[in-house]
Simulated scan of single mutants.
Amino acid sequence: MSQYPYGPHSAHGPGTPGSPWAAGRIPPATPDLRLLLKLTVASFALSVLGSLIGYAASSEQLAAAPGVPFLGTGFVLASAVLGIGINAGLYALVYFPLREQRQWAWILGIVFASLAVLGTLVNVVLFLAVPAVPAMSGVQGAMQPLYLLPAALKLVVDVVWLVVAVRPGVRAALR
């Protein structure tokens, strides 16, 4: 169902030749909207990368932890796959309707990006505040800063997404 249940509205009236809604046309995607779509894909890719690094780190920690019989690598892998699947669904819920220039997807994207920024900040603070696991010594301990790299990049991409989302060029393309 359309955002305008009684037909599209414009300064020229619905369906008049000068309006962007003439003959059912939608306004063309602006460069800002195309950039927003690219940032959505980049955010998803960084999210998947962070999940894979988290899976690798947790698998190594579980292998080194004594007395954890019920949490094996298979359980962690299944959790990672399920998490990535849910994440993909949420990103698709924003990306595809936004590509069709739906305003509700833009609003949902702002909500999700805001939550992602807040969640990433909390995760980074917790990662830095909690002392390193004893099993993460040697090579694993030296790689700890690499675990922060996808989170930092995702934080930057999500903040840029929010900045681009409020540009007038994005609002002009939405219906």
Rank of each mutant, 00 (worst) to 15 (best):
G119H: 01
Y147R: 13
L155Q: 01
Q101T: 13
G138L: 10
A142C: 02
H9N: 09
V157A: 06
F96Q: 01
S43E: 04
Y91G: 00
R34T: 10
T40V: 10
V159W: 00
A105M: 03
G119P: 00
G7F: 08
P14G: 11
G15F: 11
L115C: 14
G13W: 13
L77H: 07
Y4L: 13
R171C: 04
G54M: 03
A63P: 00
W21R: 00
G89M: 09
F96A: 09
P31W: 07
Q101F: 06
L128S: 08
P17E: 14
I84A: 08
R25F: 01
G15L: 07
G13Q: 11
L149P: 00
V163F: 03
D32F: 04
K38W: 13
F70Q: 10
A23G: 05
E100S: 11
G138Q: 12
V156Y: 04
S58Y: 05
G74H: 06
G15R: 09
V124F: 06
G72R: 03
P134F: 15
G54Y: 02
L36D: 01
A152R: 03
A63W: 06
V117M: 04
E100Y: 08
G18I: 02
G169M: 04
V76I: 10
P168M: 08
P150Q: 13
L128Q: 12
P145G: 08
D32T: 14
V81M: 13
L36G: 02
V111H: 01
R99D: 03
S51M: 09
S47G: 14
